[in-house]
């Protein structure tokens, strides 16, 4: 089944009638893409490419100028927005800006309270959500004392308490240290695999995209590439024109090829080492 579909969606923000998007203003032009249920899709793009706007359009935090957005077969409108918000959970960038309470369980409960669930069920959902992000032991902890990665996992739990079928991470790893980033990616990957939640990971860390089924590249408000991560990183010259770089392993592959060591476009360290070994010995 189709989880989410954008049909010819356009959006503009900032000064009217300017050909080029200015700083602080940008536009999305005729976006067309779909994500299937259970998929893990990465959305890549430089800062200001419009990738975050994508997330905000999908549950009508921003309203599209034209085009249609459909979530599990339901058209996103003013009437259906609250139903759709239950289906799409969004985790944002700054772990400090997403909490409404000081204690973990109170914060995780917030979404479930909003949709009017009975008390017992909220309790169960808190337990489920905290377990899913590996934070059961922190149910009564004070959020401000947690690390960035832990805070962000609480934000994910807060979204999970609504039992969404799609989860969008809007640069949720950008402000974390490598350990926090790994925690989040691991959690998200597990949710995708075990809970069958459709994941849209918006990021500018090329390495994170390696774990996705599919990647979408955005540039200046347009979708310019859609392929598997390996397929996308094989087109390095094109990526550079979108102000993106290769993941480090891609750079090394490129350097080796240029120096006369023919290795394949692999993103796997062991495989690359094997190919180098074969070539030089």
């Amino acid at each position: 089944m189709r989880a989410i579909e954008f049909r010819d969606v356009s959006f503009s923000y900032g000064e009217e009638g300017e050909a080029e998007p200015q700083i602080g203003g940008f536009r999305l032009n005729h976006l067309n893409f779909a994500v299937e249920e259970g998929e893990f899709v990465a959305v890549l793009g430089h800062n200001g490419s419009g990738k975050s706007t994508l997330a905000r359009l999908s549950n009508r935090l921003l309203e599209a100028d034209s085009g249609e957005i459909e979530v599990f077969g339901t058209l996103l409108t003013k009437k259906t927005v609250y139903e759709i918000r239950k289906q799409i959970g969004i985790v944002f960038q700054n772990p400090d800006n997403q909490t409404v309470a000081s204690i973990v369980e109170d914060d995780v409960a917030f979404g479930a309270e909003n949709i009017g669930l009975p008390r017992e069920e909220i309790g169960e959902r808190i337990a489920f959500a905290l377990k899913a992000v590996g934070m059961e032991a922190y149910r009564n902890a004070t959020i401000s004392r947690l690390s960035g990665g832990q805070k962000q996992r609480i934000a994910i739990a807060g979204v999970l308490a609504l039992k969404p079928r799609i989860m969008i991470l809007d640069e949720s790893t950008a402000m974390l240290d490598p350990r926090g980033r790994r925690e989040i990616i691991d959690v998200v990957e597990r949710l995708n695999r075990e809970e069958k939640i459709t994941v849209i990971l918006i990021t500018h860390f090329m390495e994170e995209a390696l774990r996705a089924d599919r990647a979408i590249v955005m540039n200046r408000g347009e979708i310019v590439m859609q392929d598997t991560p390996a397929g996308i990183f094989a087109r390095h010259e094109e990526l550079l024109t979108y102000n993106l770089t290769l993941p480090r392993i891609g750079m090394i592959v490129k350097g080796l090829n240029a120096g006369g060591i023919p290795v394949s476009d692999t993103l796997d360290i062991e495989k690359l080492a094997g190919e180098i070994a074969e070539c030089v010995s």
């Binding site: 918000r85 944002f92 909003n114």
Partner: peptide, 14 residues
């Protein structure tokens, strides 16, 4: 901060 928090609350069906 306020903008992001507002978005986060709306997204969680407030």
């Amino acid at each position: 901060r306020a903008e992001e928090l507002g978005n986060a609350m709306d997204s969680r069906c407030y």
